[in-house]
């Protein structure tokens, strides 16, 4: 990893700005473990004062990155200073705010995410795959059966749970891939059809 800019929250947790929520949680756990007070791995590289400082930075980074809203606001400050991103399509800023954590995706998919008025399964799948998140990981993390997750992506209504559960699952799934849960759940065509 090259360090061409001062440490930001992502560097502190040793992740990239396109990290998913799960990456952030895992990185935080790993950092807590590595810098805990009796850590064998840390004491001979850093003195007590530095370790205290590092632990403080980790908490601070996690507090911001673990909250989609705070992270969004933080990302905005980052891209202002360090990311000359002229290719970015003009998206109303209110739209971006509802879109979760995405920073580094190319214009194409980012734009479609921004302007999407509905989130069909195919688009969700595309976003997930683009972010390199494994369906199995989401299943482990959310404790939602993989069958249901697959059904959501494939819009396979035969395997859907009851609408009220489907809505909950959709929200959790959306958060995992860095989208706003409420928004996705409200604009998932098969669910709309079931309710109507």
């Amino acid at each position: 990893m090259s360090r061409e800019a001062p440490l930001n929250y992502y560097d502190i947790l040793e992740i990239t700005p396109d990290a998913s929520m799960m990456d952030i949680i895992n990185a935080y756990r790993q950092a807590k473990l590595a810098y805990r007070t009796d850590s064998l791995a840390a004491y001979s590289l850093f003195d007590d004062k530095e370790l205290e400082q590092i632990r403080h930075e980790i908490e601070e980074a996690y507090r911001t990155l673990s909250s989609p809203e705070k992270r969004q606001a933080y990302d905005a400050t980052l891209s202002d200073v360090s990311r000359p991103d002229n290719a970015r399509p003009t998206i109303p800023s209110a739209e971006i705010l509802t879109l979760g954590d995405d920073v580094k995706t190319p214009a194409g998919i980012r734009y479609r995410m921004a302007v999407a008025t509905e989130f069909p399964g195919a688009l969700l799948k595309e976003i997930r795959e683009f972010k390199g998140i494994d369906l199995a990981d989401i299943a482990v993390h959310t404790k939602i059966s993989r069958q249901y997750l697959q059904a959501i992506e494939e819009e396979d209504s035969k395997h859907f749970p009851e609408p009220v559960y489907l809505r909950g699952y959709l929200k959790q799934y959306a958060v995992e891939i860095g989208l706003d849960g409420e928004r996705v759940a409200n604009h998932y065509p098969p669910l709309q059809a079931m309710i109507a």
């Binding site: 990893m1 040793e14 790993q30 473990l33 850590s39 064998l40 791995a41 840390a42 590289l45 590092i54």
Partner: peptide
């Protein structure tokens, strides 16, 4: 230990 050393080395 291994993952922790990789983490601290990355920082140092």
């Amino acid at each position: 230990l291994g993952p922790s050393m990789a983490t601290t080395c990355q920082k140092y």
